[in-house]
């Protein structure tokens, strides 16, 4: 059986796993974006706070994903919880960093004018500063998503959902019938899905970034 026949044969299971994989990554990216933007907003005015938040988020990223999962499993057990926590933590760095950079890059004259003509602080943040930082935040989310697509494979180790289980069981049963097909399908599937998601980001960027600030 070649890879294509294998995929056709197991389409039901594979498509479900592909869906779960993408769904976990997208949900975790969104969750990380909410958290990351909140953190960015909280710290961007203070250089020390910004440095601290960025340093913490980078530290998380230096922990190998297997090690992080091994640390989380005893606390949160096997399954979705551990996977979600790990993925969100990894996604934080690019989003927090880009939020801080994006907000910090807003021309002070623009924020000043916004306040000067009578926008509330909240209005200045949501209608002006975050809107102007949005391309940077979106770029951070894009990087995070790409990263999570790969890390989510590893999360199968913690019995997380997705194509990782294909890769793992393929590798675990190396030599047996179809094990190669299984591992290949999982890997190629992740790459294809990552490319598709990247295309989605291009579209989101088109529709949510004002023409006035698009590059």
């Amino acid at each position: 059986m070649n890879v294509l026949e294998y995929v056709a044969d197991r389409w039901d299971r594979l498509s479900l796993q592909a869906f779960l994989h993408v769904s976990a990554v997208v949900q975790c990216t969104v969750l990380a974006a909410l958290l990351g933007v909140a953190i960015g907003v909280a710290v961007y005015r203070s250089p020390a706070g910004s440095a601290l938040a960025t340093a913490l988020a980078s530290t998380i990223l230096t922990i190998p994903s297997f090690a992080l999962l091994a640390l989380l499993i005893p606390v949160f057990g096997l399954g979705a919880d551990t996977t979600v926590i790990a993925l969100v933590l990894y996604a934080l760095l690019p989003i927090v960093r880009n939020t801080i950079v994006g907000l910090g890059g807003v021309d002070p004259a623009v924020s000043d004018a916004a306040r000067g003509i009578g926008m509330s602080r909240f209005g200045v943040l949501t209608r002006v500063e975050l809107r102007l930082a949005w391309p940077a935040i979106l770029a951070g989310m894009r990087v995070a998503t790409q990263m999570l697509m790969g890390i989510a494979v590893i999360a199968a180790y913690a019995k997380g959902p997705g194509l990782g289980s294909e890769v793992f069981s393929g590798l675990a049963n190396a030599g047996s019938a179809n094990s190669m097909n299984q591992a290949l399908t999982g890997t190629i599937g992740v790459v294809v899905l990552a490319l598709l998601l990247d295309g989605v980001y291009v579209l989101v960027n088109r529709f949510t970034v004002s023409r006035g600030v698009r590059g």
Partner: peptide, 19 residues
């Protein structure tokens, strides 16, 4: 905020909202 809505404000570089 009310006060500033009643007082026009114009600055160097205009400070227009680019988006």
């Amino acid at each position: 905020d009310d006060l500033r809505r009643r007082v026009g404000y114009a600055i160097q570089q205009a400070g227009l909202f680019p988006h």
